[in-house]
């Protein structure tokens, strides 16, 4: 059961942390319309995280979903490191979002075939949301990349900065192998071909050069993170930790 708990937490944390990051755009979006779009996407991610954390709580048996979100420390979070990276400017956020959305789409398509009914159901529900997110981020990437000289230069830099975090999408460790062998989890390596096809196609349309694969960051599967996660959690978890009896 500990294995399934950890596997579920990995998926949950990735949604939760990306959702929390995106929510920082709320009230700061470039336009009113985009502000709402970003908040909507953030809320979708929180919804996915909530479903997964409720499931994790059931497997765990003692902690609630809120406990899992607000009372774990940095080293107990298993989100992909790309999710905790800062929003930067709007182009940075859209590049990060596009790379993640493409991954989510492919990941949930595979997870929907899981023999674990709860994970399969959550995956099925998420596919609909994620395909809209992908449409949104893809269009922005094309608009910015194939836009003005300045916007093109900016997003080209964005993708080069974040590229080193894309290696984690396709990692497999012992737990992943075990989950895949038990027909519960996803073979992440298998996602890469399709991910490459979509990313290359959109980058071509956006007239952005694909960065070369060089050193890739790793560690989130073991709870290792960049220094950014700690600060995020300090803010996210402040209230429930300072006032443990606070109610929603």
């Amino acid at each position: 059961m500990q294995d399934l708990l950890k596997y579920t937490l990995r998926i949950a944390d990735t949604s939760l942390i990306l959702g929390q990051r995106l929510s920082e755009w709320c009230s700061k979006g470039p336009t009113l319309e985009e502000d709402i779009a970003l908040s909507n996407i953030s809320l979708d991610l929180f919804g996915q995280a909530n479903g997964l954390l409720e499931y994790a709580s059931k497997i765990d048996g003692s902690r609630t979903a809120d406990d899992l979100a607000f009372k774990r420390n940095e080293r107990e979070f298993y989100n992909l490191q790309i999710c905790e990276q800062e929003n930067g400017h709007f182009g940075d956020t859209m590049v990060r979002q596009f790379l993640c959305d493409t991954y989510f789409m492919l990941f949930y398509q595979e997870l929907s075939k899981s023999e674990d009914e709860t994970l399969a159901a959550i995956a099925n529900k998420s596919i609909k949301e994620v395909s809209y997110h992908l449409r949104h981020s893809k269009n922005w990437l094309i608009r910015l990349g194939d836009g003005t000289d300045k916007s093109k230069e900016k997003v080209q830099k964005s993708i080069e900065n974040i590229w080193k975090f894309t290696g984690e999408f396709f990692e497999m460790d012992d737990l992943d192998n075990l989950m895949y062998a038990n027909k519960i989890g996803v073979n992440n390596i298998k996602l890469k071909d399709e991910w490459d096809i979509i990313v290359n196609q959109v980058l071509l349309e956006a007239k952005i050069n694909r960065p070369k694969d060089s050193y890739m960051m790793t560690g989130s599967k073991k709870g290792l993170h960049t220094e950014l996660l700690g600060k995020m959690l300090a803010e996210m978890q402040y209230l429930p930790r300072a006032y443990p009896d606070a109610k929603w």
Partner: peptide
């Protein structure tokens, strides 16, 4: 496309 998406979101 942006108009359609913004309308959907709003």
């Amino acid at each position: 496309e942006m108009a359609l998406q913004n309308a959907r979101d709003l």
